[in-house]
Amino acid sequence: MDRTAQSDNLSFSGIDSIHLQDQAVTESMGAILDHAFEHLAPSDQMITRRRRRLLMAARALRDRREPPPGVEDVEVFRDARGGYFVSDDRSGWQDAYAEQLAVASRPPPITLRAVE
């Protein structure tokens, strides 16, 4: 840690790079905490549900040799998208999202060129 950089307000942590800061936090975390008392927000619940589904798929593969969803049929992920979009205030976000999804799902136009 660079205490001079900390005191001169050049670096809050005194650790040179993001990678080293991340490593320092990871290595100094200590024992695993019991999170049973927490009240999760909807975004946290989405993450825990996704992790639970991944664990269930991994166990099904290990125990029953059952391939994870999407391995044999990639269409199950067709409508899953991440990201963001900007919309006007005239329509509800659900309608704007459905429109954006429809546009993103269309194949690109084919342009034909004459070969010389």
Rank of each mutant, 00 (worst) to 15 (best):
H39V: 09
L40V: 01
R50G: 03
A31Y: 11
Q6I: 15
E99C: 07
V115K: 10
P107V: 08
E27C: 13
A58Q: 05
H35G: 10
T26Q: 14
Q45N: 03
S11D: 12
I47G: 06
S87M: 14
A98S: 13
A102V: 10
L10H: 11
P42T: 00
S28C: 09
Q94Y: 01
R51V: 15
L101S: 13
Q21E: 13
E66F: 11
W93N: 08
A60V: 05
Q100V: 11
S28N: 14
R52Q: 08
A104P: 04
E116G: 15
S17Q: 07
S43A: 08
Q23P: 03
A114G: 05
R81A: 07
D79M: 00
R106T: 06
D88P: 03
V76T: 07
D95I: 10
S91G: 04
A41V: 03
L33Y: 13
R52P: 01
S7Q: 15
F77C: 03
D8N: 13
G30V: 01
R106E: 05
L55M: 04
S17M: 07
Q45T: 06
A36T: 11
T4I: 05
L61E: 14
D8C: 12
W93L: 11
D34K: 08
S13Q: 00
D88E: 06
L10S: 02
D44A: 12
L61A: 15
V25Q: 07
D34E: 00
W93V: 15
G82T: 08
I110N: 01
F37A: 08
R78S: 02
Q6D: 01
D34P: 04
E72P: 01
Q23S: 13
G92C: 05
V25A: 12
D22F: 03
D89G: 15
V25T: 12
A98C: 09
A41Y: 04
G92F: 07
R78V: 06
V74S: 13
S105I: 00
Q94L: 06
M56C: 09
M46S: 13
D73C: 05
D73T: 05
D34I: 02
R65K: 14
D16F: 04
R52G: 00
G30L: 02
I47F: 08
T26P: 04
E72T: 10
E66L: 12
D79G: 00
Q100M: 10
R3I: 15
P109Q: 13
M46L: 15
E72K: 09
E75D: 12
L101P: 07
R113C: 06
R64W: 02
Q100W: 12
H35A: 12
L55T: 05
D16R: 10
A58H: 00
R53C: 07
V71I: 04
A60Y: 06
R59S: 13
S43L: 01
P68V: 11
M56R: 11
